[in-house]
Design a protein around this nucleic acid. Structure first.
Length: 584
DNA sequence: CTAGGGTTAG
């Protein structure tokens, strides 16, 4: 009897049984995982709201935080709406969580509206409020404004920024490529001018950005700096550096980095190895990539769909598409389901090997499995169809992809126009190009290069010249391929003067001639029997480590009997032939 | 007791 009474009393005190009961359920939900987690949380919320007296805002915040962690931002906001309707008083925590939700939903403006509400109600926003808003601006790609707000906090001494504030701003600056500004801020933290020292995460952001900015050595320097200061590198630090090194063909150093990290007691992850696998594959050494896969398996790590997908790409790149196909079987054995990217690469591999039927069959098969081909898959398939001389089927597929909701991108158009031109449909290609209107997305030098080259190859040099003028008129900057294509056009038209003029223009505009450029000009000069000038260009090209191609060489050999015994041209040719022999 | 950030691979 006494017992019941005591419980009865406790029911109305702060630590009522229902309070602790809910606390328990919130705690167990925190540790739970699974598909019903959101629903369970919502159910608990309903139960709590039905309880009399109503639950306190702290418990509700705890529960809603769980929902936020599951990225259900609009749900979280609607729950706060309900608590408000129930007349439960809100607090600053609840406001901050709401601001965060709005920011995550791409509604920074609502976030600032809530800030106004806080101020209007005579409350004081705290650092968490400002951090959330600054981060909201970063999420909305409004990094400049984020930095301004950050500066305002400093300037007007609204509140003192902490490590999180600095972290947000550093990340934001890195995100938009202002790495040096981020580095400045990092140095500021290091200098002790503020009370918060940088942690490994802040270093990581800057190190990663430096690597992306192709400043790997700077990144390595900062890494050494950081370690010296006693900040322990994480797996992210190493991954960024390994990626950076790999991007610059420094695989040996990357592999050394892997050994270093293990020595330092940092375990590489699937990610780490996949970076190496991918890099070896891109370099053409699938053997090393396979070794890397073995190394990761030895460490108990399981290659994932990205790892295998990199391998497939590696085999395809070498034209070993049958080996690529075997990788799919290896994936299946391990219950890893190949995704559309994986299949796209294999399809591309078949297309490049001209095994168009195999590619087409796979393309159909994956759709039967329910996979949706993306713009890349269609691109490969289109290219394959064009290459196999079936432009009609390609055009049909181009229409079909749009019916299926895939929007062609600039790559698709490059493939399409290139394919059409190669199949002697350059006027159709041009008509289609015109029908697309003056979309900004169509202002692409590479697209113009394809069309210029296509028109000239289809025997329509005047169209090519018109396109070149048009490109200049649009303010597009011709690249080496544009110049080469136009120089070929002029040569074919017998306009050697125009050709040489263009070569000058190209150098003036800072566009370096490549092997093709020299071959075009040397071959044409030889054809025109202008051996002296040909000689000058020939020497220049050899000095720049370019070799004459087959056609140029033939023209050279033809001229040899006509030039004097000790002419420079003869010496050059002799030098060339001896080099050639050495190479063989 | 509850709120704010956090990166890497195809």
């Amino acid at each position: 009897m006494n017992c019941t009474r005591r419980i009865g009393l406790r029911y109305y005190s702060t630590a009522s049984p229902s309070t602790s009961h809910f606390n328990q359920r919130i705690t167990s939900l925190k540790n739970a995982s699974g598909p019903t987690k959101v629903d369970d949380a919502l159910q608990l919320f309903d139960e709590m709201l039905q309880r009399q007296p109503p639950p306190n805002i702290i418990q509700l915040n705890q529960l809603i935080t769980l929902i936020v962690k599951m990225k259900q931002y609009s749900t979280a906001l609607s729950l706060y709406k309900q608590t408000k309707l129930m007349g439960i008083p809100t607090d600053l925590y609840a406001m901050n969580i709401s601001i965060n939700c709005h920011c995550r939903l791409d509604q920074v403006a609502y976030g600032f509206a809530l800030l106004a509400t806080i101020l209007k109600q005579g409350h004081q926003p705290d650092l968490a409020t400002y951090n959330t808003l600054i981060n909201g601006l970063v999420l909305a790609d409004r990094v400049f404004e984020a930095v301004e707000l950050f500066k305002k906090l400093l300037r007007e001494k609204v509140c003192e920024p902490d490590q999180i504030t600095f972290g947000i701003v550093i990340n934001g600056l890195c995100k938009v490529g202002h790495t040096s500004k981020a580095l400045e801020l990092l140095r500021f933290m290091e200098s002790g001018s503020c009370k918060c020292k940088p942690y490994v995460e802040q270093y990581n952001a800057v190190i990663d950005s430096l690597c992306k900015d192709k400043m790997v050595d700077h990144a390595l320097e900062l890494f050494a700096n950081m370690t010296q200061k006693g900040v322990i590198a994480s797996v992210f630090t190493y991954n960024s550096l390994i990626q950076g090194l790999c991007n610059f063909g420094r695989e040996t150093e990357a592999a050394q980095m892997l050994r270093d990290m293990e020595e330092e007691g940092v375990s590489p992850g699937v990610h780490t190895f996949t970076i190496l696998v991918d890099s070896f594959c891109k370099k053409g050494s699938v053997k090393d990539a396979e070794l890397a896969v073995q190394a990761m398996v030895r460490r108990g790590l399981h290659p994932d769909v990205i790892t295998y997908s990199a391998l497939i790409d590696g085999y395809c790149l070498r034209g070993e598409v049958d080996d690529a196909e075997k990788v799919i079987d290896r994936m299946m054995e391990r219950d890893i389901v190949p995704d559309i990217i994986t299949y796209s690469r294999l399809i591309d591999g078949y297309c490049k090997k001209k095994r168009i039927h195999k590619a087409w069959r796979l393309f159909q098969e994956i759709q039967d499995k329910g996979l949706i081909p993306d713009v890349v898959t269609y691109g490969s398939m289109l290219q394959g169809l064009f290459e196999s001389g079936n432009p009609a089927a390609a055009r049909e597929l181009f229409n079909k992809m749009q019916v299926n909701g895939q929007v062609p991108d600039i790559c698709t158009y490059r493939i399409l126009f290139h394919g059409m031109c190669k199949n002697y449909q350059c006027s159709d290609a041009l008509a289609l190009f015109r029908s697309l209107g003056n979309k900004e997305s169509m202002e692409d030098v590479r697209l113009y290069n394809i069309l210029i080259d296509g028109c000239s190859k289809c025997g329509n040099p005047s169209l090519a010249m018109d396109l070149f003028d048009e490109l200049l008129l649009k303010g597009l900057k011709p690249d080496v391929r544009t110049y080469n294509a136009m120089m070929r056009v002029y040569c074919e038209e017998g306009l050697l003067g125009k050709c040489k003029e263009l070569l000058r223009k190209m150098e003036e505009s800072g566009c370096l001639p490549d092997s093709f450029t020299y071959n075009i000009i040397v071959r044409e000069l030889l054809k025109k029997n202008e051996c002296g000038e040909a000689e000058i260009f020939l020497e220049e090209m050899i000095n720049r480590d370019f070799m004459p191609d087959h056609a140029t060489f033939e023209n050279l050999l033809v001229r040899i009997p006509n030039v004097g015994k000790d002419s420079r041209l003869r010496t050059t040719v002799l030098k060339l032939t001896s080099v050639e022999r050495k190479d063989v």
